[in-house]
Design a protein around this nucleic acid. Sequence first.
DNA 1: ATACGTGCAAATTGTTTGCATCTAT
DNA 2: ATAGATGCAAACAATTTGCACGTAT
Lengths: 165, 165
Amino acid sequence: MSSSRLGDPDKRDPDKHCGPDPSLAEILRGRGLRLTAQRQLVLEAVYGLGHATPDQVHAAVSRTAAGVNITTVYRTLELLEDLGLVTHTHLSHGSPTYHAVGEYQHVHLVCRVCDGVDEVSPSVLDGLVKGLESSRGFLVDVGHVALFGICRQCADQPASESENL
Amino acid sequence: MSSSRLGDPDKRDPDKHCGPDPSLAEILRGRGLRLTAQRQLVLEAVYGLGHATPDQVHAAVSRTAAGVNITTVYRTLELLEDLGLVTHTHLSHGSPTYHAVGEYQHVHLVCRVCDGVDEVSPSVLDGLVKGLESSRGFLVDVGHVALFGICRQCADQPASESENL
DNA sequence: ATACGTGCAAATTGTTTGCATCTAT
DNA sequence: ATAGATGCAAACAATTTGCACGTAT
């Protein structure tokens, strides 16, 4: 509890993400909310991790500034989602996966066998999206698509030696 | 709640599901496992419900035969999944959703606003599936696709009066 | 008769809530 | 100075596990 060097927005590549970190303050201010070290850290963690569970975000944040409570991570993720800076999806079991909005969009390919998560361009969905929009009026949230199945490696293997991670 | 008519495989439309209920016994036997009332009930519940959480399955089973423990439902769902009779996906938050394998395939359209779940034919995915298979060698599990977005009704509305279910 | 299955309760794990304290503004 | 934010602990909810009893085979 000495002087924690928390107020450090650009610990990582500033141009690595399109998310406007500097504007976080403005967005918060606009709502009468406060800019805190924790909020910057959580947002940075989401940017840096690509996609991560609350627990993983907490771990990442803790690496930089120990003492940040998991409760705060939950609350902050919820807030950031409310602010439109991040969203979450459910890749496989358990905890939700958060990722930055505005981050380059990608579709998740989750392998049922090895649990690996791959990413592809959302353009693969173009046809599908148009089809559903015209036939059902359903607007697909391209940024949140997760497709489950079997990846090439696991499909090739005899399905028995998939014990290794 | 007197004599529980447990051993009753076709309480519902026998041709409503392609899942071979009668063969459950054989499948179990083949593995040295036992056919029990609970297992039949859980399987029937999944067939009847279309897709449901463990809790909903438990409720449905309890309606027919009170006293079946939620623990057993969990264990049985896991077993049935292992046997290849059911699978689960994650539609929105929380608990997983189980549904029968072999059931007519369908793609879920989950509305972020009203939380409604719609279904469409997997044929809408044909192009996508082929594309991913050739480009990535990824075999999409068509039966487990959930697409999130906004349904027609919610898209039309001014986004404020979406309070009604 | 015997091993598998079930129910019950306790243990885990993930997430939320209440409240006193702390701090950005 | 003051309302909002955080940390801590307790409350919750969902799922899993251990174990003695029950039952399909």
